[in-house]
Amino acid sequence: MKVLGIESSCDETAAAVVEDGQRVLSDVVSSQVELHRPYGGVVPELASRAHVVQVVPVIREALHRAGLAWSDLDGIAVTRGPGLVGALLVGVQAAKAIAYARQLPLVGVNHLEGHLQAIFLRDSDEPEHPVPCWPHLGLLVSGGHTLLLECLAPGQFRLIGATRDDAAGEAFDKGAKMLGLGYPGGMVIDRLAQVGDAQAVPFPRPMCNRGLDMSFSGLKTALSARLQKTGQPTEQALADLCASFQGAIVEQLVRKTLLAIDRTGLRELQVGGGVAANSALRAALGTAVSARGITLHLPPRKRCTDNAAMIAGAGYHHLVQGERADLTLNATASLPL
């Protein structure tokens, strides 16, 4: 079953074709490609969230790269929330128009469920890799979300922990901004931290006794206080500060994940979302869970950030279960899993 996925929940416009919820036939994200207009010429680089302009060229490109015609598609999956309503609506309306015109089954997908589907995807020329067995534990860490979930079955999740304020990805990006590394600069912190000493600067270790809830806002405040006192560091001092700040975020994520493993008794863990690309988090989780005999599943970095292949993958499971959305499908800003 070949499913066209469409994603426009925040900054990126994306479309992809995925076969049977696993094999990625194409995966197009607007910020990463030069899009060709239908009658020649390249669409110039556009601001984020120009979904109306980008959605049709992105979908056409996804079909083109998959080598498919409209008639080869078996279904459509579109992100219906959570996110920006204005942005989501563009994808939802495009999906409904295509579904109506081509008489294709349509489902709306929760963006967060998409991130937890990324681990099951593989490129069409890539051999099968081990995937998590159900049920398993999910850690979803991105710019907008930081969640611990029991993943019970495809499309079935139970929230067991979350941040009370900033998301982990946001802490990275705002930290980078304070350090003069640009926004979003989470990836710059990751790079600089690789030559820094994570023990150099003490940061608070919040939420020690708050169960599975997390908090990252205090780290931002501590960084701000530090910078007021010492001024902007450079070179090795900057690398040390990046490593220490990153270390505090990663330590909390790992500590809460281990606590979730203890509480649920689950033996497999998957990590999704943009922060799953962070090398310190990947390394620290690897060390921490292998010591306990837990199997860790990490998606490749390119599937951590927002994409439509994960939406097509998640939508596949809803479609095979017979779920259908009609033309009243709407976008929802706040949509719990």
């Binding site: 991105s142 009370r164 946001e170």
Partner: peptide, 13 residues
């Protein structure tokens, strides 16, 4: 949970 809206830009409750 009321969280920071920076990434999502708009949050509705």
């Amino acid at each position: 949970r009321i969280t920071s809206p920076t990434f999502n830009i708009v949050l509705e409750y």
